[in-house]
Design a protein around this nucleic acid. Structure first.
Lengths: 160, 160
DNA sequence: AAATTATAGTTTCATTTGAAACTAATTCAA
DNA sequence: TTGAATTAGTTTCAAATGAAACTATAATTT
């Protein structure tokens, strides 16, 4: 032990969550990325358009918490491969409405089971109760995480 | 609802954890990155060397789950700024032993409270019980996540 | 209705990242 | 012990990412 609590990285929550998330993303992406030639941002757009056809890029960005550049690139790539088709919104010609092509639908239909299987695997060692707890915890953490977290943190550092 | 369960991204666990982790990392990094001219990989190396002086780059990589290239770059940058010093291991001259300089120690001492404050903030809405549950859940999830997750997933996709 | 401001989306450029090749030291095997 | 295989760490190159500038359309102000 050192001066203060020396910050054991292994038990530091932000770090643990980051490692967990990374492991999950990488593992899951590994299951479909090369096989379907689909990177994570594309997968997210695909899944979103599956649920919300005729979204604009902006709407997809909002739903996925991706930034608009990432969405733009993912959409281009999906369109090149014929997985997404677009049409101009006649009411607002700045907007492009996006939807899956039949190919895109088919691809999504193949990946969804993979995704669900992986999710099940993650959850399989949890009891019913623990799954409910997880729900609660994710919600609470997400809420705290996205608060402008600066106040305490800043005041801590102002002096020194 | 569509064909099968259409994969609502908002309730898809891998996605939720990824968004949470991203939000946390970004927020936390925002609190020290520009102020101390320290990026996330550097911060991780710094924190690790604080706890485990005279680690080799390899050891740091293992502890932080970073890859060796990232460690190498972070170490270079920390050394340029005089925050880390190195010495060659006389028993194995391939290895470089790393430790914090006094400056590095001082920097770490300033950031640790910020990190702890942010962690506290994340946890502050959780009851004592929920914190224990979180502990259990993170462990279980991490264990499942890092299993070669392929079996089920692959078998699912082989056909179709 | 002309000029200003705002919004949707793309492109550009600079930075970050990762994989693979590389250098140097060590260990193992014949 | 020489030669092959390992291991530590760095460098190189190509791909991914993000911020800011840019284009085009729409909404607002005067």
């Amino acid at each position: 032990m050192a001066k203060q609590t020396p910050l054991e990285l292994d038990s530091f929550l932000p770090y643990r969550i980051s490692v967990l998330a990374n492991t999950i993303s990488t593992t899951l992406a590994g299951a479909y990325s090369q096989r379907f030639d689909l990177r994570i941002p594309e997968w997210r757009v695909l899944a979103t358009l599956g649920g919300y056809p005729d979204s604009s890029a902006r709407e997809v960005a909002r739903r996925t918490a991706m930034d608009k550049v990432a969405v733009s690139r993912a959409v281009s790539s999906l369109m090149e491969r014929g997985r997404v088709v677009s049409s101009i919104d006649t009411l607002d010609r700045r907007r492009t409405l996006l939807r899956l092509s039949p190919d895109g639908e088919a691809l999504l239909a193949r990946i969804v089971p993979l995704a669900h299987a992986y999710e099940s695997r993650l959850l399989e060692t949890l009891t019913r109760q623990e799954r409910l707890q997880l729900e609660t915890l994710l919600e609470k953490l997400m809420q705290q995480a996205s608060l402008r977290s600066s106040e305490e943190v800043e005041s801590c550092s102002k002096r020194s």
